[in-house]
Simulated scan of single mutants.
Amino acid sequence: MSEPFLITSEMDNIGIITLNRASKRNSLDEAAIAEIDDYFSNVPSHIRVILMTAEGDHFCAGLDLKEHHDKERSAVDFLRVCQGWHRAFDKIQHGGIPVIACLQGAVVGGGLELASAAHVRIADTSTFFALPEGTRGIFTGGGATVRTAKIISASRMVELMLTGRVLNAQEGERLGLAHYVCNTEDNPKTAYDLGLELARKIATNAVLSNYAIVSSINRIADMASTEGLFAEGLMAAVVQTGGDVQERLSEFVNKKAHKVRPKS
């Protein structure tokens, strides 16, 4: 029996999932996608934040091309595979729980599609990003045209796919593929350490507020302005009449809450 693709653990109210196929650069086959779908369909109720990490030198090198080659899928077969990826990654992005991805090495093709579904992305200096589908004679199928293109723009995605150009961690950060770059002079922490630090901070937010942030903002961005403003107002009305709002506002009114200040 093969080892599971995901290793799962918990640290208080933080769920930790680790991609566990380092020998294949954590490439994604049908079984791996099924495990991701299953985990994000059944997240324990006490988990407030999820940290996504990977074994080995690479986060994820994308679609398992050997499986794809060996199965010789028909167009309908592969459409169903793509729909499975879409379902699994939608549960990451829209599941209501913040997901932080700690990146290293290859974040390529389907690996970039997986990372794009996370809400916070932390890269170390070994991280590189690419969409090599054009050079492989294939096309993205795990949601890049929706998720990744929204991050970097459709025009930039076209250029990356046509040329096969590889972006380093700093270039990826400038385009929004990473929110932080670690192991640098300015930020000497590891991606995992910073990810855990941010996870602990995010876990202290109001649960309903976190849910609204990760579930509604991307959906509202897809709406026309009028519908988006209405949806925003509805979400604000729900969140700002939640159970712990008065307590948190009372701390602010009584000058017990932290102040927002620039970094020194």
Rank of each mutant, 00 (worst) to 15 (best):
R156S: 10
G137I: 12
G137M: 07
D124V: 00
V146M: 02
T125N: 05
P132L: 06
V146F: 05
V158T: 08
F129S: 02
F129D: 04
A123H: 00
E133D: 11
T127Q: 07
I122G: 09
V146C: 04
L131G: 03
R156C: 06
T127C: 10
G142E: 04
S155W: 04
R156G: 01
V146E: 10
T127P: 11
G134A: 15
F129A: 03
G143F: 07
S155E: 13
M157V: 07
L131W: 06
T135I: 04
R136I: 12
R136G: 06
I138G: 01
P132G: 04
A149P: 05
E159P: 00
I138W: 00
I138E: 01
S126Y: 01
T125L: 13
G134F: 14
G134C: 15
E159S: 11
T148A: 13
G137P: 08
K150R: 13
V146N: 07
A130E: 14
S153L: 08
S126Q: 02
E133R: 01
T127L: 08
T125F: 05
I152T: 14
R147M: 11
E159T: 12
R136T: 11
I151K: 10
F139T: 07
L131M: 15
E159Q: 13
G142Y: 02
S126K: 01
E159C: 04
T125G: 04
T148L: 14
G141K: 02
T145G: 00
M157F: 01
R147P: 04
V146Q: 12
I152A: 10
R147T: 09
A144C: 06
E133Y: 13
A130K: 07
G142H: 04
S153E: 14
V158I: 13
F139W: 08
V158R: 12
A144I: 02
R136F: 15
F129H: 06
E133L: 03
T140D: 08
T148W: 07
T125A: 09
I138F: 02
V146G: 03
F139E: 09
G134K: 14
F128R: 10
A149G: 15
V158W: 06
A130W: 09
R147E: 15
T145M: 01
R156Q: 14
T145V: 01
V158L: 15
I152N: 11
A154D: 15
